[in-house]
Amino acid sequence: MNLFRFLGDTAHLASILVLIHKMHTTKSCRGISFKTQALYVAVFVTRYLDLFYRWVSLYNFFMKLFFIGSSCYILFLMKTKFRPTQDPAIDTFRIEYLLGPCTVIALIFNYKFSPTEILWSFSIFLESVAILPQLFLLQRTGEAETITTHYLAALGIYRALYIPNWIYRYFTEGVVDPIAITAGLVQTGLYIDFFYVYVTKVLQGQKFELPA
C-alpha cells in the first residue's frame, strides 16, 4: 500500500458517501444516472468474486464489502424511496454498447483464460466506461447540482490517483499491470472535460453549466 492508492481509495469511498448524502439531503436522485450506478454494481460484483477464495487484508476485505454493499444500496434507493425523482427519459445511453465490447475485450485481454480472471478483466474494462451514461446525462441536461459535481470530482480524483500509484509500484516493485493501466488511463481521460468545467466554474463558486 502506498499513499497514492490509499488516497485514491479514500476519494472513492468519499464519492460514494457524497452521493448517498446528496440523495438523503435533497430527497432526490435527480441528475444521477441509474445506468451508471447499475454498471458499478456489475463492476464490483464481477471483480470481487475473489472475496470467496483469496484473502488479501482486513482493509481489502472491508473495502470490497463496502463497495458492493453501498452500490447495491444506491440502486435500492433509486428504485424505491427516490424512484419518483428519477427520470429515465433523460438516462438514455445504450449500455449494450458498453457491455458487448467489454465482454469481447475481456475474452481477448486477460491474465489467464479462467472464468474469474475473465470476469476480473471485464470489470476493469467496464469500470473504465461505466461513467459514460452519467456524463451523457450531464451533457443532455447541460447543468448539475453542485453536490453531484462533487461526487463526480471525487470519483475522477480516485482514478487519477491510481496513475501515480502504478508509477510508484513500477519503480518500487518492478511490476506493471497493463490491463489495469490501460483501462485506468482511458477512465481518467473521460473526466478531463468534466474537470475543466468543475475547476473553472464550481470551484469558483459558480453553478455547473455547460456552454451552450
Binding site: 472513492h12 488479501v56 487484508s57 491474465y111 511490476v175 489495469a180
Partner: peptide, 10 residues
C-alpha cells in the same frame, strides 16, 4: 518489468 495483475488493488 514483469507484467502481472496486482491482486491487492481495489
Amino acid at each position: 518489468a514483469k507484467a502481472a495483475r496486482e491482486k491487492d488493488e481495489l
